[in-house]
Write a protein that binds this DNA or RNA. Structure first.
Lengths: 250, 250
DNA sequence: ACCTGAACACCGTTCAAGT
DNA sequence: ACCTGAACACCGTTCAAGT
């Protein structure tokens, strides 16, 4: 066989393939038990080739994280098609994120750990730029709805706050609940906290705290969540039911 | 030298000593770059002795985390001496946590990562029990104030919520902001988010969302924070100033 | 030009030997 | 009874050799 120059497209395709294989391995174990040796054994490529794509194990982790974030972005976009108020659509975004989290619990953990400096410290510049873009795109989608709410008068931007702080407050509060609940393994009895319920609770409290109309005492958001889930994510709900980890409604 | 039986007290004392040495090493590097070899080199004990105390590296990490949480508990108790409303004292708790976080950024990262299943999976049962106790004690201190607020009528427990959910909502929202900001290394421009400001913002929004009186538009909580910090944590404020990372007031 | 996998380095953990 | 550190195992990373 004569040596042949690999095209950029083939190279990119191979990278996607490797990432998908790695994601498959994570499903059955965990991001922390994934080793390069296992990946090499599962993939039709050698160690050297893997290292042509990823400058380190952490770089691979971040690549997995970025792929997940792109998937989540697609779910966000589907969620934003919901016909309702801006606040309804923020609920829809939360629904979509929770559904993704429940569909891919092991991957969610990968996304959460990818946030740590030890991962970013060992990643390539391009991967980090890509990661920032992914994150920015997700926050941008939330930002659009916040802007809409300000324009329609549903939300009044507090005079002492920057626009980005609104996005950050909303996202970080919900993220905190998820991260705390997901990171507690099965072992520990973290009282009876439920991923879906606590996420919606934090979201509700933050938005009520902003005075974002309609307030939660003016409207039954549990019903809105139900509507969103069934209208937009019925296939995913069915999958979760089959997996034995159904989406929990309040 | 004749062999001598080590007493329980001496054993416990040695454990504390090792943990302190490890904490010292973390200060200059990071929890992820701490190795057992480095610890052995810095400590007057051999590897075998280290492993008499900690069944794994993760077990040591969790021990460090537990020690930190005990320190934080002491700060919480100091904070709770603040003379004011229950909501004021929750602010005081937030001030104390932020001050600790700023005093020990590297240790905070250790505390955050200790939450991951990969750490708890490799820790000893006793260490895990201790960890649960530490966590429970911290949440309990917050819970006392929530109870007080309910009894004085400042807070009305929403009819569809468990008491523990209030604690969790408050803590997870603030924790989410801190974890996101701290985990972003220096590299990334996470817009201009400020640890102190975002933590207080999330706290404020959540408590306003609960309708916890006095609401933030009825009272200048920035001034309360200033009062708390100077009345209770002046020595720590001075230290932070000397460190070049002053506590930021709004 | 590209791929391979043996070799290397690092580090967590163990345990036979020493006191 | 306790401590020690050499030895082992595992795994991330590199690079000389092969096609």
């Amino acid at each position: 066989m004569s040596p042949r120059t690999i095209t950029d497209k083939e190279f990119a395709q191979r990278e996607i393939e490797i990432i998908e294989i790695a994601r498959g391995l994570i499903e059955f174990e965990c991001i922390t038990t994934l080793t390069i040796d296992k990946l090499v054994a599962a993939a039709p490529y050698s160690k050297g080739t893997i290292y042509k794509h990823f400058i380190s194990k952490e770089d691979l982790f971040l690549a997995i994280c970025n792929t997940c974030m792109s998937e989540i972005k697609e779910l966000f976009i589907r969620a934003l098609a919901f016909n309702g108020s801006s606040r309804d659509r923020l609920e829809a975004i939360m629904v979509s994120y929770l559904i993704w989290a429940k569909l891919h619990p092991a991957q969610l953990f990968a996304v959460l750990t990818a946030h740590s400096p030890s991962v970013t410290a060992c990643s390539s510049d391009n991967r980090l730029i890509e990661h920032n873009q992914c994150e920015h795109q997700l926050m941008e989608l939330i930002g659009v709805e916040i802007n809409l709410a300000i324009n329609t008068g549903d939300l009044t931007l507090p005079p002492d706050m920057l626009f980005e702080q609104v996005t950050f407050a909303y996202w970080s509060a919900a993220w905190g609940a998820m991260a705390l609940i997901m990171s507690k393994g099965e072992s520990i009895k973290l009282e009876p906290m439920v991923l879906e319920r606590e996420s919606f609770t934090n979201s509700r409290l933050i938005l009520d705290g902003f005075g974002w109309k309609p307030l939660s005492n003016e409207k039954d958001y549990n019903q809105t969540v139900r509507k969103i889930a069934h209208e937009i994510f019925q296939p995913e709900l069915d999958t979760l039911l089959k997996m034995g980890t159904p989406f929990i409604f309040n």
